[in-house]
Simulated assay, not measured.
Amino acid sequence: MGGADAGGHDNTANGDNTANGDNTATAVHAAGSPDTVVAWAPGRVNLIGDHTDYAGGLVLPMAIDLGTTVRFDRGGTHLRLRSGRRRPLSLDLPVAASVARSLSDLEPSWGRFVAAAAIEVGATVGGDGEITTTLPVGAGLSSSASLELAVALALGFDGSPLELARLGQRAEHAASGVPCGIMDQLAIAAGTTGHALLIDCATERYQPVVIPDTVEVWVLHSGVKRRLADSAYAERRAATESAAELVGPLAQANLDDIESIPDPVLRRRARHVRSECDRVQRFAAALATDDPTTAGELMEASHASLRDDFEVSVSQLDELVVALSARPEVFGARLTGAGFGGCVVALARPGSNLSGVGSTAWLVRASDGARRITG
């Protein structure tokens, strides 16, 4: 979860959402042919279950109908990509070992995610084109994972959603240095229209969970831009790993054992992971039985745990959750993603209008996963 946002590609698509394209990935044509390639990957919002994926726990994200489109004309061994008004990327393929060793120095910064995906694919054929996105950058909606997976598909990746997710996770680690779990990439690769995904990150197994017609999902920005490379994400992961060394895998750890951890910080981190996994299971059951009231209560409890036990919230997120929870049309709200800024996700009655609550708000719908549309 919580990969670093791709800070270089901006929201220039303005509604150019190709989510409704053909869901059949087609074979890449022979090297050197001038065919146009179009690939699309959604972003994701996590409904519940944060900072549990890298602990081998449960998460419940959903791919959303905002995403990243990569279009280019194939040919040659040079990849040239433009992204809005940002500095263009020029990259020789295959990516040289010297570049791979120093991705953190590659400019433009958004090109690090492209280069990492190209390395993982082993791409040797380039082209000339552009990247557009309808995703807000720095909001915690996985713009970097969306970019990585769209680029990988455009460059010829051909495999299962899980294989694509693993590729994207490796690319994220290389490009950002953030030791993220697999949630973001797997939600984006395996998304299903009208459903969230219940993912067991220990086994990497997942199953769709229907989003009932009695709720809508809103994402609201706190006004605080989030960048995980500058946050305490790695410290939080290290703390959970230290706690697991004391009591075993946190997702299944005995609560009494957790409460006996001598270090109060490690105790709180472990308590969040264990209790959050329980909340994910109960939330999935609430959606399956069309019980949005219980789902909303679980979201509120999740936010409190992230705020108090995991300490990844900020005042702007807390205030936004309070404001949303006070509205009668809202079942519940919580920070989404890794925290340290970014967005709140809210479950609301159909027809609600939450656009005036946060600095920016999006009504999102569950989307199919990443795919190559042409090429």
Rank of each mutant, 00 (worst) to 15 (best):
V280R: 05
E319V: 09
A295M: 08
G223V: 06
T193P: 09
W218G: 06
V125M: 00
A253N: 04
V215W: 02
D65N: 15
V219T: 10
G194K: 12
V114C: 04
H303D: 02
R282E: 04
R86F: 03
P208Y: 05
A286R: 05
S83I: 09
A165M: 09
A152P: 05
E107L: 15
V45P: 06
S275T: 13
L106D: 00
L317T: 04
R112L: 07
L266A: 02
V70C: 10
R86D: 10
D53T: 08
E276W: 03
A229S: 14
S352A: 14
P88E: 04
A366V: 12
L60R: 08
R268I: 03
T240N: 00
G67A: 13
H221Q: 11
V99G: 01
G351S: 07
D309E: 12
G67R: 11
A244T: 01
V265Y: 08
G111T: 08
D128V: 12
S242Y: 04
G7E: 04
E216Y: 06
D53Y: 03
S83E: 03
D105H: 14
D158T: 12
L320K: 05
L354F: 00
I258Y: 01
R82Y: 02
R80E: 02
T192Y: 06
L167K: 02
E235H: 11
A243F: 01
R74Q: 06
A232I: 11
L320T: 02
S143R: 12
L58M: 14
A97V: 02
V38M: 10
F157R: 11
R85K: 15
R269A: 00
Q185V: 09
A288N: 09
A370M: 10
G177D: 00
I48D: 01
T294S: 12
G111C: 11
A175T: 06
T69S: 13
H272L: 08
P350I: 08
R372M: 07
A333D: 04
W218T: 07
R85G: 13
D22R: 15
R87L: 13
D230C: 08
H29Y: 11
G8R: 05
S90F: 03
N20F: 14
V59N: 00
P262Y: 03
V37D: 01
M183L: 13
A346R: 06
S275L: 13
A175H: 04
Y54P: 02
A202N: 11
R82H: 11
W40G: 08
R74W: 00
D10E: 13
A239G: 10
A288D: 05
A25T: 15
G168H: 03
A234D: 03
L298N: 06
V114I: 12
W362E: 13
E120C: 09
A333P: 06
P350A: 10
